[in-house]
Write a protein that binds this DNA or RNA. Structure first.
Lengths: 183, 183
DNA sequence: TAGGCCATGTAACCGGTTACATGATTAG
DNA sequence: CTAATCATGTAACCGGTTACATGGCCTA
């Protein structure tokens, strides 16, 4: 899965500019597939157009740079379907937070508490986003938002219920840092 | 978070060779942080040793290449703690499966069913791994395994309960492919 | 008037992967 | 006899990020 496919998927759900695609893939409802920056999106759109998978129309606006609005073509839609039915890359979950948790015995309790609070806040923000998506969309988009909500809720509940167990593994504030590491 | 930190974290929990580190970070209990291949692990270990964060001892075995067993040093442990208390990279979840689900309206039902079955099987395998980790480890490692189990179970239950809703969005086998895409 | 948002694009860089090189042992 | 497992390491490549270049409008 790459930025090309991401662009096609977004354009399948409606025309957009490179700038909008970036926003949607970083903060919006397309932020669960690949992360992309301007440096990868703009070249990808240019190549997509050269390959005939999307078309562009330029919209000049007074006092602002021209917006380049991209639309998917039939060939693009077929390429997207091909990508979606062909690839089998597994889902991945990568968690710096869990690495902190795994090494709780090595860290000052203070920091562990902060890390948990931060993670909880992240989850809450994410759940709000997903909630607004679920209530404003339909079909597949609504479904995946509900799926996400379900997972986030489970995470949040577990963290809230069992954070104490984790916190009591941490190094005491007044103990020598790393004291329990050797044991 | 990079391969260097991953190696330190693994070595903190016990000595290991590059080969073992790779296994643990691909299939084992360290597969939730960064994915690493030989091409990144071996150079990382070499640099870690040059920096004095790990030490090596070579173990020759008859008829096999010598094993290079790495151990973390005090400096390495401190570097790991620094990494763990400093960084704040958010957790990421990237799901090719959810992109398929999001575009259910575009795909033949047959393929969607396959994708769901495959995802369910992945989850089950993952849960078995986590179960064995949870029952054989303690402390932070056990805790994160239980956390993972909780999330996977929630995913699995949702998928099982609501897969029908998703499947009925897909294109009928006998309909023209892409027929509903235009609507 | 400083910073954020809109809006597009390029070039250098970099952390990783893939493929290659080597080779014995063991299980099917 | 074949494939997998053990075991280490290098070099080419590549998909992405970061930083840069440009510039007007709007808000605090």
């Amino acid at each position: 899965m790459n930025v090309r496919t991401l662009c096609l998927a977004i354009l399948q759900h409606g025309d957009a500019t490179g700038y909008e695609i970036k926003k949607m893939s970083v903060e919006g409802e397309y932020s669960y597939f690949v992360d992309a920056s301007f440096g990868s999106i703009y070249p990808a759109l240019a190549r997509l157009e050269a390959d005939g998978l999307v078309t562009v129309r330029e919209e000049t606006q007074p006092g602002k740079p021209a917006r380049k609005i991209y639309s998917i073509t039939d060939a693009g839609r077929e390429a997207l379907i091909g990508e979606l039915t062909g690839q089998t890359d597994p889902d991945i979950f990568r968690s710096p937070f869990l690495l902190v948790a795994m090494n709780a015995e090595l860290l000052p309790r203070e920091h562990l508490v902060k890390a948990i609070d931060a993670r909880l806040a992240d989850l809450q923000r994410e759940m709000e986003l997903l909630g607004s998506i679920a209530s404003s969309r339909s079909g597949g988009t609504e479904w995946i938002a509900r799926y996400g909500m379900n997972c986030m809720t489970a995470s949040h509940d577990f963290l809230t219920a069992y954070r104490d167990q984790l916190e009591c593994l941490a190094v005491d504030a007044d103990a020598q840092p790393g004291e329990r590491a050797a044991g």
